[in-house]
Design a protein around this nucleic acid. Sequence first.
DNA 1: AGGGGTACCTGCGGGC
DNA 2: TGCCCGCAGGTACCCC
Length: 278
Amino acid sequence: MPELPEVETIVRQLNKKAKNLTVKDACFYWRKILKKGIPASRFSKSIKEKKILKVRRKGKNILIDLSGGLTLLIHLKLTGRLLFGEKSFIEKDPYLRFHLELSKNKILVLSDLRKFAKIILDKTEKIENLKELKELGPEPLASDLSIDRFASLINKKKKKIKDWLMDQTMISGIGNIYANEILWEAKVNPFKLASALEKREITKIYQAIKKVLLLAIKNKGATISDEMYRDISGNPGEYGEKRKIYQRQGEKCQRCKAIIKKTVISARSAFYCPKCQK
DNA sequence: AGGGGTACCTGCGGGC
DNA sequence: TGCCCGCAGGTACCCC
């Protein structure tokens, strides 16, 4: 579900609201949400009375650093939501999979329609060394990601540029919505092979990534349908209305008025303007 | 090594 | 009306 802008929004909000609270208890409603690390049998005991020191993001992963050298990793996958609020507000959610009871009568709930979301609790160092994090490519918004490094990563892969953008080992945090939006912004056809892109196109993509992701973060992420992303208060993001191409097949391109097309690339839906993304 | 196919899940909308 | 199919923001794992 959430891609970089949505996860970034959640992380910023948690740092404002949940930082410095203490975990009082943990509760599982769907056992399989716990993937590795400290097992369910020791989970509650390990996490109790630990303080939330800081919340971080790596790609689409949420990392909650706790006192005692522990970190809780959360990946929301397609339909996961993290909701923070008063203890009383949880009961109605039919997709409740896990929650943390916090001090000051607060609660952090993980709700997930499709049960794909996962959590891992372990020592901070062990979490950092998980291959899911170790194999992530650079952060697209990192100031030290130079255009040259970016270009060399693009040129070494013989896969379609849309697939390249969604490959978490090449660059982290971009999923299907933003891959489509970025390529529209850069005026690059999603079928083009990464290895065959000219420097001029690579530069456009590099700039489009920053422009699109920053604007999406500013708008607190994208929500296009009911089951999609919510922030930690349950509010939708506002980037959905501002999107240019994703799920806009049949509409006029806002740049050139041609009709937007929908197709499939590597089993994922792809949207592009046949006129200005040649 | 790396690509393709499939599995993990539930719900919804469209076509028949 | 109702059923069946395809599809949905993601990744992990298997096989070749």
